[in-house]
C-alpha cells in the first residue's frame, strides 16, 4: 500500500476526474491517491466517480484555494 499525489490544479472538470481515473488505473487496491484541484466541481465529480467505480473517498479538505480529495483505490478496478 502506498500513497500518491496528483496535481490537478487549474484544470476544469471533467479533467480532474479523468486525471484521477487514469492515475488510479496504474495503482493497486488499497493505495491512497491525494488529488489536489481547484475546480469546485471536482468536489462532486471525484466522489461520484469513486462511488460508481468502487473506490472510497477518505476525506475532502480545503486549503486556501486548493481542494484536496484523498481516495483509497478499491479492489475491483481495471
Amino acid at each position: 500500500m502506498s500513497t500518491h499525489s496528483l496535481d490537478a490544479r487549474r484544470l476544469l472538470c471533467p479533467m480532474p476526474v479523468i486525471k484521477a481515473q487514469n492515475r488510479v488505473a496504474q495503482l493497486q487496491p488499497g493505495d491512497i491517491l491525494e488529488v489536489i484541484c481547484t475546480d469546485p466541481g471536482a468536489r462532486n465529480d471525484i466522489p461520484a466517480w469513486c462511488r460508481i467505480n468502487g473506490h472510497r473517498v477518505l476525506d475532502v479538505r480545503q486549503q486556501e484555494r486548493d481542494i484536496i480529495i484523498r481516495l483509497e483505490v478499491g479492489s475491483d478496478h481495471d
Partner: peptide
C-alpha cells in the same frame, strides 16, 4: 458553472457521472 461565481453555489454535477450512478454502472471517461 465552475468559472462563474454566481453559479458556484448551484448544484453542480457531471451529468454522465450522475446517470451512471443512477444506472448502477461504471463509467469510463
Amino acid at each position: 458553472h465552475a468559472i462563474r461565481r454566481q453559479d458556484q453555489n448551484k448544484h453542480k454535477r457531471n451529468n454522465a457521472l450522475w446517470v451512471a450512478e443512477q444506472l448502477g454502472i461504471k463509467l469510463h471517461i
